[in-house]
């Protein structure tokens, strides 16, 4: 996609955000919204930030399914971590290990890294190209991540050009 197309997409997204935030739909406020959007897009262009990665609206439907799956994982591991925090013996076994990310784009890798961190029990400590250093609270959480289901799912929703 061309740069212009990206800029237009960003502009549309920002204007939609403005409309949702504003709540005042007089012509004047909408005009302000258009002007603000144009100004921000101008600055983002100058900052050389217009590319695939600043397109939060360009998501495939499958991303929604991924979010649902991720939400379930988050709730499951939350309950697990909560149980461990509250049990008197503090049954944790911290481990550090590396996983390999199969994503091709930076955005895909960042999605994977942040998903790992978002699930309690695992935190991404370092991202070096496609090798992630991960700190896990328990061996079980580590083994769970090493199975690579999350990696595969992120690969599936990643858009590659």
């Amino acid at each position: 996609m061309s740069k212009l197309q990206h800029a237009i997409n960003l502009g549309l997204f920002l204007f939609a955000l403005w409309v949702l935030l504003s709540g005042h739909y007089t012509p004047l406020m909408l005009l302000f919204g258009v002007l603000s959007t144009l100004f921000v897009v101008f600055l983002a262009t100058r900052a050389d930030l217009i590319d695939r990665e600043t397109q939060p609206i360009l998501i495939k439907l499958s991303v929604l399914f991924y979010w649902v799956w991720l939400g379930r994982e988050i709730i499951k591991s939350n309950i697990d971590v909560t149980r461990r925090i509250l049990s008197p013996g503090l049954p944790i076994s911290p481990t550090v290990f590396t996983v390999r990310a199969g994503q091709k784009t930076e955005l895909g890798r960042v999605t994977y890294a942040n998903s790992i961190t978002l699930v309690p029990g695992t935190v991404t400590m370092d991202v070096d190209k496609d090798v992630f250093t991960v700190h896990a609270l328990t061996r079980e959480a580590a083994a769970d991540l090493k199975r690579g289901e999350m990696n595969r799912r992120v690969c599936n929703v990643e858009i590659v050009f």
Binding site: L17, W18, E53, T54
Partner: peptide
């Protein structure tokens, strides 16, 4: 990168 335009807006 993702948040810079959002903060400005």
């Amino acid at each position: 990168k993702l948040f810079f335009p959002l903060i400005l807006l």
